[in-house]
Design a protein around this nucleic acid. Structure first.
Lengths: 341, 341
DNA sequence: TTGAAAGCGCTAACAT
DNA sequence: ATGTTAGCGCTTTCAA
């Protein structure tokens, strides 16, 4: 691999490596004739520059890191598509790192980035992350970071989010309109800002309808794809059994459906379910699932665009801005108003 | 970024850079006392080696490329998890490249790997790929490649697949047992080996039951996440309307369900559906979906393990082997036997 | 318009 | 046990 080097081209053409390098970069210092000779030979020998040699000189890797909790979540996989679409266009490479919701893994990953392996970071923090020292540590050493969805408020950089409070408020209002009076907010974190915002949006809707007393926040761990069936069953068989559930994370939904089914609870008759989800199959679930769908692709795209811009233009600085893209409520069967006969 | 270098450590400690380098690698040439001094200072100054400098010397990047058609397919995202689990353990980095089912993109991506950016490639080819020149080109230049799922038969390397023929045969036999007599095989390719094998497995089951005359293979493009509703509707309203569909690709399933619903076809009464799919939500679809589920995580894991082994041990060569992992048939509602009243 | 030389940070062979 | 030197491949002064 990587056999043909500038040196070889230089030797072959009787030129210096410097001249070759300049010619390949279309420098005005080099004559047109020479450029043509160089390009021709480069093509003939299938010359491909060694990116690491060039990185070493430039202190630029044309590589960015994507750090996120879980690729199997369709929000994140679509966001990756958005990121990739920009990367390909701007000639950037994408290193993928998964935290699996572990703060410790996240920290280790971030630490390595001090090495200069990447020019910037696109990140959605883990559900466990409460200490931001390693993030702000690396950010303060001038490593550009752009957050998307699960942002880190404390860091003064660009953040791409959705209207979590608002969409959750709207969705919860919808639940209430459909007849819910006891709403449970189901999440995988109690520290993430998105969770907080969504919870508060939901709570606001409950307050406005005088049902805040029965509002619950149930937090379940989601390491290693385990779902805490016991806690879920406990909730659904308790005195305070909700008649509406807001799932903050897509992955929980199949489990919730299953538990309901096992307990003989009918959706939407006995209990209505609504989920933040980008699942393609939402419309063909049994019953079809009402979702708050985030513009995942767009978020990834915007985040990557801003990050790469900040890397490429020295004049362009990452500013402490929060870009809010709208989510969409798709009402379906799982929250249908149930009229008793 | 990457401020503290070996040079700085050397200066600080009054040693040569060579001594530092050796100490950091725990060489036996260096005294224990010195090693300790070096390690201590490295830790204090938070020294992180520059990977590109080291890559340049070693001609090793400790990076591998994952090249696949689509991250939003749950098979691939789970395979990535498997790959990542090995990478993290072996201290490898993962560059992600998406072909979006485009042969041309695939070729461009592969070409760049001649640069030495990666030490090896994990790959699932696009549905369009029929010319393997660029793959064999780079493979013949000693770039290790391991294929998983969508393999390239022509290349003499390790391939991780599932028992496509067998599982498709079993699944189709199941369809027939449930009463199907007119089976359509729905795929996104007519060139992929997995497609061929699955098709032949299905055909064998049909032949054994004397229903091969009504067997159809419908191929639909799946670029840019578009689904060809027209062709699907055409099939389902034609004379030869199937009573059983085998979906070769997960992504098509929601669309197929939708078309059936729109045409008033009841699943599984009028038509039975079965899909190759790793979708978590298969069990809660309406109706729940019978699937052939591939061991995606395991496949990624095995592929990565073999690839990294071949990179790390010169004695270990990639041999032309095909590792077959078993898929599982999960029978659910969508293929239930329907007994007319 | 081209070349010589130095150096990015790290490492390996070869001194001492 | 430690240092010197050269070089991975590329780029960038600076000199010619």
């Amino acid at each position: 691999m990587a056999n043909v080097t500038i040196k070889i081209l230089a030797k072959e053409l009787g030129l210096s490596t410097a001249a070759i390098s300049k010619a390949l970069h279309d420098s005005h210092e080099i004559s047109v004739a020479t450029k043509q000779r160089v390009l021709a030979l480069a093509k003939e020998l299938n010359y491909i520059p060694n990116p690491y040699a060039s990185s070493l000189r430039h202190r630029k890797s044309n590589t960015l890191a994507v750090v996120l909790p879980d690729v199997t979540d369709s929000f994140f996989s679509e966001a990756i598509n958005g990121i990739e679409s920009v990367a390909i266009e701007k000639d950037f490479h994408v290193l993928l790192y998964l935290t699996h919701e572990r703060a410790q893994r996240e920290e280790a990953i971030l630490k390595e980035f001090q090495s200069g392996r990447v020019d910037g970071i696109l990140m959605s923090i883990s559900s466990e992350t409460t200490n931001f020292d390693s993030i702000s540590g690396i950010f303060s050493k001038n490593m550009p970071i752009v957050f998307f969805d699960r942002i880190c408020e404390q860091i003064n950089t660009a953040k791409i989010i959705t209207d979590d409070f608002e969409s959750s408020y709207i969705a919860t209002s919808h639940l209430i309109e459909q007849g819910c009076e006891k709403i449970t907010f189901l999440s995988n974190s109690d520290s993430l800002l998105i969770t907080k915002n969504r919870k508060e949006g939901a709570l606001k809707a409950c307050c406005e309808n005088g049902i805040e007393k029965t509002f619950l926040h149930l937090m379940l761990d989601c390491y290693a794809n385990k779902f805490d069936y016991e806690k879920m069953e406990e909730l659904l068989t308790s005195e305070q059994r909700p008649d509406g559930i807001i799932c903050c994370i897509e992955k929980f939904t199949p489990n919730v459906y299953t538990v309901c089914r096992e307990l003989g609870l009918s959706i939407p008759k006995d209990i209505k379910i609504l989920s933040f989800s980008n699942l393609n199959a939402a419309g063909i679930l049994n019953p079809s699932l009402t979702t708050i769908t985030q513009p995942a692709f767009e978020m990834g795209k915007v985040a990557a665009t801003i990050l790469i811009k900040s890397i490429q233009k020295k004049s362009f600085h990452l500013i402490d801005e929060t870009i809010i893209l709208p989510s969409t409520l798709h009402t379906r069967e799982s929250t249908r108003l149930w009229i008793n006969d």
